[in-house]
Design a protein around this nucleic acid. Sequence first.
DNA 1: CTGCGACGATACCCGTGGGGTATGGGGGAG
DNA 2: CTCCCCCATACCCCACGGGTATCGTCGCAG
Lengths: 285, 285
Amino acid sequence: MELELRTLRYFVAVAEELHFGRAAARLRMSQPPLSRAIKRLETEAGALLFERSSAGVALTPVGVVLLAEARDLLDRAGLAGTRMTAAAGRAVLTVGILGDSGDPDAARLARSYRARHPHVEVRVREAGLSDPTCGLRAGPVDAALTRAPFDGTGLEVREVRADPVGALLRADDPLAGRAGLTLADLAGRDWFRFPDGTDPHWQSYWHGGRPRRGPVVRAVQECRQAVLWNGTVGVTLVGHDPGEGLTVVPLTDMAPSRVVVTWRAGETDPLVRSFVRAAIAAHRA
Amino acid sequence: MELELRTLRYFVAVAEELHFGRAAARLRMSQPPLSRAIKRLETEAGALLFERSSAGVALTPVGVVLLAEARDLLDRAGLAGTRMTAAAGRAVLTVGILGDSGDPDAARLARSYRARHPHVEVRVREAGLSDPTCGLRAGPVDAALTRAPFDGTGLEVREVRADPVGALLRADDPLAGRAGLTLADLAGRDWFRFPDGTDPHWQSYWHGGRPRRGPVVRAVQECRQAVLWNGTVGVTLVGHDPGEGLTVVPLTDMAPSRVVVTWRAGETDPLVRSFVRAAIAAHRA
DNA sequence: CTGCGACGATACCCGTGGGGTATGGGGGAG
DNA sequence: CTCCCCCATACCCCACGGGTATCGTCGCAG
């Protein structure tokens, strides 16, 4: 009898819903694996835990006993976790994100991470667009949720997602109606660009692989202004509302922008490691 | 923080041994996965649980807290299992085995199964050699630990092991000194054989694929007598002491004898299912 | 100082199990 | 009788947990 808490969580969900489908939804999984897990639990227990009939699902007497035990165990397990994290004391984790154009899921990630690690004070530090590492090397940032590519020496980088990119244009631009563009279509235009000294990989990517002329920007708002006022163009993400008077046309010959989580190589702080795990898991879902 | 009991068992083992290698041995696993599991636990916890130094392994203050919590949880989990099985009430499971030539691990299996399911009364019913299903179809046997091949219609069969076989000979037989034999070497001999009506697959296997002449046997002891008194031969398992005056020479052209666990197809009794699982697990180890 | 042994960490591979989707089947309601 | 609801089954696939081999480090002995 090797009970596992995950199985008990499944069992409690079914026992409370008395409906496999709803329990599965509550557990954010599909119904068949749940049925299978319960059946396996019944096998281990050596007794049926639920009475399945056309009238529905009902707990057997053995199931009633297990339900009480399982709830107790799960409560205590939660308490144990809380006590342990309390013993670990408070801690601070500073996460860098990439300005307002950064990952839109960052807030969701921070929330879920805080829920899982209530003892950790998570500080989010927004960097401008011109530093893809968000000051990871120099500053107090412990981990960054940012975008590739950049110079990764001394850092660990793990890709979590890739987003398609497009050209940011004025809505009245001659090219604005096109379904898709190539970099060649934008030849000769002024591009908004990043300050000198910015990571070369980073510049090269957002400039479509070529040096560009045009106004220097440090934040998304400046990009918008540059396009609106000067008619410059530039690369941005598709799928978000570009704002009044602007439009985004997919660039068909540019590699998607890779969202990554990065941290200092050889980092030993478990907080950083757990944040990285959470970030990867959050993006997988 | 999604604690799992297995991880806590690992943690407790390391915390008690203060030595990853010994803890791994106690857990019957190798050391690297254990190190990894502990590291992952530390990551989830957001704190180091052990202080690794050249002096050895020591618990951190957080580890001390978790150790107390973990022991408590594991104890309660064990209790929960006991209460549940108690609630399930007593039950009877009848297991058929294949006479004294059956699986030598059957006793071990029965012991471990009884330990895991103390509420189940396990009755072991020894069949003769002439019924590979041990009366599973007709009789009160719920599951059988036997050997293939036999007619499996209406039964579920799962192989758990395969044993090499050899020829059972008198120690003074001219062939007794050989390191290995083929079926051709035994051509023309009388073989001990099974009664008429015995499962044809079964007969065919033990007779080396050919009809044989010779005395009928129903138990291992009769096989020994047939060989000792009449100079007949037959197929048996290698690796067990054949008894005084007898010897076993490996048969190089016979397929190994497959140990299987079998039960009635469509069986719903969780006891039977759990026994099958236990049997498979026991033989895997 | 250097070779060696002990021990935990790392790298890598593989099989299983737990997750998914698609489908079956049985039992009520209309 | 047909449809629908709902749990079970069948099948696939990837992640993870397990394994072996090897490394890095540190203490110790010669």
